[in-house]
Amino acid sequence: MTTIGVIGLGRIGAFHTETLSGLTGVDELVITDERADVTAAVAAKHGARAVDSVEALLSAGVDGVVVAAATPAHAELTLASVQRGIPTFCEKPIASTAAESARIAEIITGSGVPVQVGYQRRFDAAFAAAKSAVDSGALGTLHTVRSTTMDPAPPPMDYIRGSGGIFRDCAVHDFDILRWITGQQPVEVYATGTVQGDPLFTEYGDVDTAAVVVRFDGGALGLVSNARYNARGYDCRLEVHGFDDSVAAGWDQGAPLRNMDPGNEFPTGPAHNFFMDRFTEAFRTELAGFVEVAQGGPVRGATVADAVEVAWLAEAATESLRRGAPVALESVRKKVSNP
């Protein structure tokens, strides 16, 4: 019998509950949220057991916990689960800042309790195939990796106000993929951005469109493109270019682009509408992997160490945008260590 707990039943938590309810190997779900009515509704829909607090969930004999609450609660909830010795899946990020992420990761590593972090693109079939192609050596020396994330519309401005900015909220997925695909470590970041939409982005110190160049220690260059306004659909693509070959992921029939080449109808659509429909199978594979972790298996997804490195990248990109100049990753780490 494998029992999985889910803490937080907002958009992603309810989605994860639905996914988990259909997975072989999950015998029972125990769920909770601060809103009792939401907990009851999600429990009734998916046949889960509703409890009225985090403490009740952690005491319910769960074999694994999925932390899907709001970002500011991730660190506290993850540590509460780990301190009980319960394998944990934490949605990104594990904490609100890079320094806090590093502190939390150190505690988790010392505990020996497995923790998986929610970067689902690693479990997408096309992204995984691109990774295999790189690892096989078929592409030769890597020179350029392009990662794109564009949303159909911005999230609510109340969310933007507390999100930490486009690099901490959105680009972290691109940063994780760049590190994972290349197998190299970032050494320098240059980020720029503009606001052409809602002026509240400027008021909150954010941008609605951003571009980032990442230089890696192996010589590869990563190019990240992010946008909050892409009405044709949710655009998430990857290109990996080497001296010997090039591969792509996300160039499927749902890519939200109109092809201007005469006589070429690709992509035929319909366009992906949101990240949850684009990555439905990736989320399923990711959570199935976590169920195996809860049953005693190894973490196959992003680790807390990976999450910390991504957080440092986001920190460096945020500083680069502010300064209008390239920022070395090492300088950001030193600045935080020696304020």
Rank of each mutant, 00 (worst) to 15 (best):
A69W: 01
L23P: 02
Y234I: 13
T303G: 08
V62E: 00
F290D: 00
A317P: 04
I166C: 10
I94N: 07
I94F: 04
G22W: 00
A220R: 09
V82S: 06
D27H: 14
F274C: 13
G64M: 07
D151G: 01
N264G: 01
H16M: 06
A220D: 01
L77N: 00
M260K: 11
G197M: 09
L9E: 00
V310T: 15
E239L: 09
S21R: 11
L58M: 11
G5I: 12
P154E: 04
S21Q: 12
A48T: 11
S59F: 03
K131R: 15
I12H: 05
V304C: 04
F279S: 09
W312S: 00
C236I: 07
D151S: 07
G165E: 04
D27N: 15
T32H: 05
A191R: 11
T192W: 06
N273I: 14
L313F: 01
H74M: 09
G112R: 10
L142Y: 07
A316N: 06
L287M: 10
V293K: 05
V66A: 05
R228F: 15
E281F: 11
A317L: 08
V293Y: 03
S101A: 15
R49M: 06
A249W: 00
G183V: 13
E265I: 11
P256V: 08
A102C: 03
A211P: 00
I181T: 13
R215K: 13
V247T: 15
E34F: 04
Y119L: 14
E239S: 14
Q295P: 02
P256F: 07
A73G: 00
G137E: 07
A288N: 09
T19D: 02
P262N: 05
T78Q: 04
E100F: 03
V187H: 04
K335L: 09
I166R: 00
N226S: 14
A129P: 02
A271D: 01
D135H: 02
